[in-house]
Nucleic acid binder design. Structure first.
Lengths: 209, 209
DNA sequence: TAGGCGCGTCTAACATGGTTAGGATAGTGT
DNA sequence: ACACTATCCTAACCATGTTAGACGCGCCTA
């Protein structure tokens, strides 16, 4: 009976090590900055020497790639978890979605740079790692579509708006709340232009000043 | 009479060489990408070996710094030159300003990355190099202020809007015109929310769809 | 016109960090 | 018990920014 073992211990260990390395890379990246990540440090943190990492990753960029995939996967999961919690009111829900991305992107500089800014020279995410990012975007289109945003142009403007304010946060107001306030205001402007119904509770004082 | 020479030939030559090096750096940066710039290539282009560059610049980042200063200075000059040409109509003028920055930022990827994106690990512009950028921003505040945009919040949203669409251009539509169209649309939304008077010629069909 | 001084360039070499080569070791299956 | 392979190591390689120190040419002064 007991012939074929139902577990592949080697594969399991391999995967665990990969995860451990990626986790270590996140820690170091947050400490020293994403771009200053040194393989020697990552290796040391998991009790190895740098060359040993090459048993588990093809290159440094492959580590970045795994981090990229992980971050976007985590964000996709977060969005999926958020959806049932969204307000029934379209404008409120869209604001929540905007704020959710904004919060995720401002909470962790290294992660944001990896996910949304081309900061690593020569690093391009593989299609596989990119997939969750694409799905998040599609999901965004659907989420807004269900709430009355039918034009792809308007969706892209919404995305640009959020992205622009995230950048401004990191450049001019790291740690502050000013850009979050601006985001709310900006989305209201945008929603007004689209003719989305105003929010019931917050009695939508004109966005004008 | 003729004692003190009225020219410092050495200083002139030195400055000329600096400019030559920076010009070469721009060419190489556009060819190979800003982050992949190699000092050996820059040196070769001006007929030197890499170490000789250190006679004229303290480090590679100092070259980036000079490029940064040059780019922002050039943009400041361009804005100053643009101002007399601006439309008398506030909304049109603001659209022109937005488009002007957008065009400048989309015309040259390497320049944009240097000016607006932190793409070079460890490079931080010196206060001196940063000065023109600050002046451009102040000038923007004034330019919009004179046209009815009195809130700094609204100004910052306007800036974010442009920045967001520039990023989207480089990420999703390099070479295309789609984001330029979106920019126009987005600025209209923003101007509507601020209550800026609509444009006379373009009879301001509602920005809505 | 000769001597000296200093600017600007060179070659050689160093430092750092990603990467490769090849050997030792330990866990795994027969 | 034995062989195999996964995993780790040391040593070394390579690229690139940077430093040290020598060489030569032009300019100034005597």
């Amino acid at each position: 009976m007991l012939d074929a073992p139902n577990r592949d211990r080697v594969a399991e260990r391999r995967e665990a090590t990969r995860l451990e390395i990626v986790a270590a890379a996140w820690v170091i990246a947050r400490e020293s900055g994403l771009a200053s990540l040194r393989l020697r440090d990552v290796a040391a943190r998991v009790g190895m020497r740098a060359p040993s990492l090459y048993t588990h990753f093809e290159s440094k960029n492959a580590i970045y790639d795994a981090m990229f995939a992980q971050a976007w996967q985590e964000y996709e999961d977060a969005v999926i978890a958020l959806e049932p919690e969204l307000s029934a009111h379209p404008r409120t829900a869209i604001k929540q979605l905007a704020r959710h991305f904004y919060d995720y992107a401002t909470a962790d500089l290294a992660r944001h740079q990896l996910m949304n800014v081309r900061i690593i020279p020569g690093f391009e995410p593989t299609p596989n790692a990119y997939a969750p990012a694409v799905r998040v975007l599609e999901r965004g289109v659907e989420n807004l579509g269900r709430r009355g945003v039918t034009s792809r142009d308007d969706f892209d403007i919404w995305v640009s708006l959020i992205g622009g304010l995230v950048n401004q946060y990191h450049a001019n107001d790291p740690g502050g709340t000013r850009c979050a306030v601006l985001l709310n205001r900006a989305v209201d402007m945008w929603a007004d232009a689209l003719g989305l119904p105003v929010e019931p509770s917050t009695p939508s004082r004109k966005t004008r000043r």
